[in-house]
């Protein structure tokens, strides 16, 4: 279910590492909790962010949720496709529904994140 090549946070974001950069999105669990996503508020390219700081906002019909960057970095690209078609996040949260690309400040911060198996166990824990 959850791709092995991604890192996961307790706030239900995922990161895909490509060299010194990371693609950031929200997990399938997160999109299911939110329901139909109808609006994505993206940051400007060049914005810097600290770990655990809000970097974007997604809205469903009834809720507003901040997306936190699991690591510090600088926004180098945002996904204009999800700005136009927010339901991409519901349809393909770990793929086409990616949100933005960061230049990572300190890759050692990735050690604090979960791999797929740990994230799945974390989710099981939430259900009880």
């Amino acid at each position: 279910m959850y791709p092995e090549n991604l890192y996961y946070s307790q706030d239900h974001e995922w990161l895909k590492i490509e060299g010194e950069e990371a693609i950031l999105g929200i997990t399938d669990f997160a999109q299911k909790q939110l329901g139909d996503i109808i609006f994505v508020d993206l940051p400007a390219v060049g914005k810097t962010v600290e770990a655990h700081q809000a970097i974007a906002t997604v809205e469903s019909v009834k809720s507003v949720s901040d997306i936190y960057s699991p690591v510090a970095g600088e926004v180098v690209q945002v996904n204009q496709e999800v700005a136009q078609t927010p339901e991409l996040i519901n349809r393909d949260p770990h793929g086409q529904g990616w949100i933005l690309r960061l230049k990572i400040k300190d890759k050692s911060e990735l050690n604090k994140l979960m791999k797929a198996g740990d994230y799945e166990k974390f989710l099981e824990g939430l259900e009880h």
Partner: peptide, 9 residues
């Protein structure tokens, strides 16, 4: 119940 199949649907 707040939602069954999805709010928009």
């Amino acid at each position: 119940p707040v939602e069954y199949r999805g709010l928009i649907d």
